[in-house]
Design a binder for these strands. Structure first.
Lengths: 181, 181
DNA sequence: ACCCGAGGTTTAGACATTCTAAACGTCTGG
DNA sequence: CCAGACGTTTAGAATGTCTAAACCTCGGGT
């Protein structure tokens, strides 16, 4: 773990000198120098102090590129199972009496412009896989666009719904665990 | 910073004893105990070793609720060629580190004639959806043929595997709850 | 040229902490 | 009741953090 370079960048971004930072974090400037050159390594408590002085959390500091969701697109061919058109969207419950099971898989079909009803606040997690089309997943106050072959996964306690943002019908395979019905 | 409780939970989730973890991380069980009871605090290097042994990154470990990094993942795949010598089938784990979630979605691709390794006997239930091709689901001593758009659902305690019975590659979206890894 | 101050580096070493080793609890199954 | 698995506690060593202070290096002013 080489954290020196990262610390230095953060300090410079904050427009501080090593001494400034040392004072704020109750350390010595020499020690800051050692840290930035990886000549030593801070204790967790000290690192916390330093990051505190820089307005950064441990979680942010250790967030790696791997954690960043760098999208890698993959495409796959599929077919849309039949469905009759309703005012906007159609739910097909794939498994009978799924509420007695651990998972509830549903096939969601949305006409262009249509949305599912917002739900949220219940226990569990949900998984989705886009079979066709392009859909916007609204999750809390954020929106994620997913295309054919994309998938998503999130805790079900946050308010969420799907909206067909494209011009063609969209089909999503949606799995909730545990079933919320 | 009280990390003991979090460490303990991670260890138990991984199904390890303190001694197991100590061995993996090249430490002593006594020390693990101290950590879990917040009687001491690890160096960063040591914490890294421990988390490594648990399959968790520092970023994840320190991720606070406040950071609330969306657990949503788009277009992410980790392709894990299963049996090395075994030609023919490919598992793509759609959600990173899904073993910490309630469901484990996997994309299974089978070349013509290929089979997955038989598994069974574990807790939970499994759900599958055929995205392309035609596949035989072997479940106990019975075989069910599923085509594009078909789905299946069964308890995971029975021995089961998939075999591509067609002449074209097959793709199946497979979801296990709870994850069996 | 010189000095000066700001920013940074290096050093030796005091001290605090991590971490080990081993003994000691506390369960549970046989 | 014993044996073994699992966890806790303890004393102490080894390690590494962190301080204090001296030491660079660069620029600008006079």
């Amino acid at each position: 773990m080489k954290i020196g370079e990262r610390l230095r960048r953060l300090r410079l971004q904050a427009g501080l000198t090593q001494e400034d930072l040392a004072n704020r974090a109750d350390l010595t400037k020499g020690f800051i120098s050692q840290l930035e050159n990886d000549a030593t390594s801070p204790s967790i408590a000290t690192l916390e102090d330093i990051l505190n002085a820089l307005g950064v959390t441990l979680g942010e500091f250790f967030r790696e590129d791997g954690d960043r969701e760098d999208p890698v697109v993959f495409r796959r061919e599929e077919r849309v199972p039949s469905g009759e058109s309703e005012p906007g969207f159609l739910l097909s419950f794939l498994i009978p009496r799924a509420h007695r099971h651990l998972m509830e898989p549903v096939l969601v079909e949305l006409d262009p412009g249509a949305s599912t009803e917002p739900i949220g606040g219940h226990e569990g997690e949900e998984f989705g896989f886009v079979l066709a089309g392009q859909v916007d997943l609204h999750l809390g106050d954020r929106v994620h666009r997913a295309r054919k072959g994309d998938c998503f996964y999130y805790p079900a306690d946050r308010r969420h719904w799907l909206k067909n943002s494209g011009k063609r019908p969209v089909t999503v395979l949606w799995v909730a665990s545990p079933p919320s019905f």
